[in-house]
Amino acid sequence: MTDTKTELATVKLDFPFARGDQTIEKVQVRRPRSGELRGLNIADLVQMNVAATAKLLPRITMPPLTDAEINNLDPADLTQFGMEIQDFLLPKAAKEQDSQG
């Protein structure tokens, strides 16, 4: 769920995964900055394009997810990340319009 004050969202994974001796159950996602969007198409991110989402996630997650971890995510978890990214990218006016309609 997105916290607009800190510009962070926490994704609780439906399918946690192991990293060494640690089990990753939650991942924080930070609002991307323009430089972190380099090489990506914002429309692809808003449409939750898998390749675009996978390219952005290592740049904005804590702990930083590796390419291998992202490629092994369950689709439900990847969708959660995509929804948070999508929420970050929508202008405030669009969000307000959605909540009123």
Results as ranks from 00 to 15, higher is better:
residue 40 L to T: 07
residue 7 E to W: 11
residue 57 L to R: 04
residue 45 L to K: 13
residue 1 M to H: 09
residue 61 T to V: 02
residue 43 A to M: 13
residue 68 A to N: 10
residue 40 L to M: 09
residue 97 Q to K: 14
residue 90 L to E: 02
residue 40 L to W: 12
residue 73 L to S: 00
residue 44 D to P: 09
residue 43 A to T: 15
residue 43 A to G: 12
residue 80 Q to K: 02
residue 71 N to R: 15
residue 97 Q to F: 14
residue 49 N to I: 05
residue 80 Q to C: 00
residue 34 S to M: 15
residue 83 M to Y: 11
residue 38 R to N: 10
residue 25 E to I: 06
residue 37 L to N: 08
residue 19 R to Q: 04
residue 96 E to I: 12
residue 22 Q to G: 06
residue 39 G to N: 11
residue 16 P to G: 00
residue 46 V to A: 11
residue 64 P to R: 12
residue 19 R to W: 08
residue 67 D to T: 09
residue 4 T to H: 14
residue 92 K to A: 12
residue 94 A to W: 10
residue 7 E to F: 13
residue 2 T to W: 14
residue 11 V to H: 01
residue 62 M to Y: 10
residue 51 A to P: 03
residue 82 G to F: 10
residue 82 G to H: 10
residue 71 N to T: 05
residue 58 P to E: 04
residue 45 L to D: 02
residue 49 N to M: 07
residue 98 D to T: 03
residue 66 T to R: 14
residue 89 L to G: 03
residue 86 Q to F: 13
residue 9 A to Q: 07
residue 31 R to Y: 10
residue 11 V to E: 03
residue 83 M to T: 04
residue 55 K to V: 04
residue 75 P to L: 04
residue 39 G to E: 12
residue 85 I to F: 09
residue 87 D to C: 04
residue 79 T to G: 09
residue 24 I to F: 02
residue 8 L to G: 03
residue 26 K to Q: 05
residue 74 D to Q: 10
residue 93 A to W: 13
residue 76 A to I: 06
residue 56 L to S: 03
residue 93 A to R: 14
residue 100 Q to V: 05
residue 71 N to S: 13
residue 99 S to R: 14
residue 51 A to M: 14
residue 62 M to S: 07
residue 41 N to I: 15
residue 89 L to I: 04
residue 47 Q to V: 02
residue 20 G to P: 05
residue 46 V to I: 15
residue 101 G to L: 11
residue 23 T to R: 06
residue 5 K to C: 10
residue 16 P to Q: 06
residue 92 K to D: 12
residue 76 A to E: 10
residue 37 L to A: 03
residue 101 G to M: 11
residue 6 T to F: 06
residue 39 G to T: 09
residue 20 G to C: 06
residue 9 A to N: 03
residue 93 A to N: 12
residue 40 L to N: 08
residue 59 R to P: 01
residue 96 E to L: 15
residue 24 I to S: 01
residue 98 D to S: 06
residue 8 L to V: 02
residue 1 M to Q: 10
residue 48 M to Q: 15
residue 12 K to A: 01
residue 8 L to K: 11
residue 1 M to P: 08
residue 83 M to I: 08
residue 65 L to H: 00
residue 8 L to Q: 07
residue 5 K to E: 09
residue 15 F to C: 02
residue 99 S to V: 04
residue 63 P to A: 05
residue 59 R to M: 01
residue 68 A to V: 06
residue 97 Q to I: 11
residue 45 L to H: 06
residue 70 I to M: 12
residue 54 A to P: 02
residue 79 T to H: 13
residue 3 D to E: 10
residue 87 D to F: 12
residue 3 D to L: 04
residue 60 I to C: 01
residue 88 F to I: 04
residue 81 F to D: 08
residue 56 L to G: 00
residue 41 N to D: 14
residue 99 S to L: 11
residue 50 V to E: 15
residue 30 R to M: 07
residue 76 A to L: 13
residue 96 E to V: 13
residue 16 P to C: 00
residue 16 P to D: 01
residue 24 I to R: 01
residue 67 D to W: 09
residue 73 L to G: 03
residue 10 T to S: 06
residue 51 A to D: 14
residue 30 R to H: 00
residue 43 A to V: 14
residue 39 G to W: 12
residue 9 A to T: 02
residue 11 V to A: 06
residue 20 G to H: 08
